[in-house]
Amino acid sequence: MSDTATASHEDGHASLIIDNKKLLMWLFLGSDCMFFGTLISTHLIYRKLYPESFEPTALFSLELTSFSTFILLMSSFLMALAVSAMHKGELKSFRRNVIGVIFFGLIFLGCQVYEFAHFVHEGLTLSTNTFGSTFYMMTGTHGVHVAIGVFWLICMYFYSHTGKMDAHESAIDVEVAGLYWHFVDIVWIVIFTAVYLIEFI
């Protein structure tokens, strides 16, 4: 999806304020705020209504979740470096960092798969109660976002080997992918606090 859409077809447009793709991505992220806002709202509303229906502290492993939070934050750091490298035109450094991001993203997904499997084993499924429904759907949607991001970055990594990347256009493409990745990270920051940590107070 690196160049899903063409850039402008106007040759040098005077009122151009910002790159088309970047603006599109930020709008998408604004929209995605509402998307995750609705999911997190649903979860917290049902937690507020039925606090006694389920005791997640017995199930949650805060160490594991903190670890995956840390992993995701560090992947965000590497992503920022990858974008920076691309802007400087340093393809090698870009590849190194992107591999790191992909690796950390996969670790995060692994943690999530392990967590889901563990929870299901302990008896919490989608249909157990409202907690199961909201929790799996919310974190699952986030996981799908991570998976799409990882897939996108893998595509970019291979694309960088084709020699077709040029410093100008591809820097924007990488930056847009980076914006997406960081957004996935900040959603997790919110989920980590609002869904996991708060249960332990």
């Binding site: 402008s8 106007e10 447009h13 005077a14 009122s15 151009l16 088309n20 603006l23 599109l24 709008l27």
Partner: peptide, 9 residues
């Protein structure tokens, strides 16, 4: 994006 970016001078 069109309205923000593509306006004529």
């Amino acid at each position: 994006v069109t309205i923000v970016n593509m306006r004529a001078p």
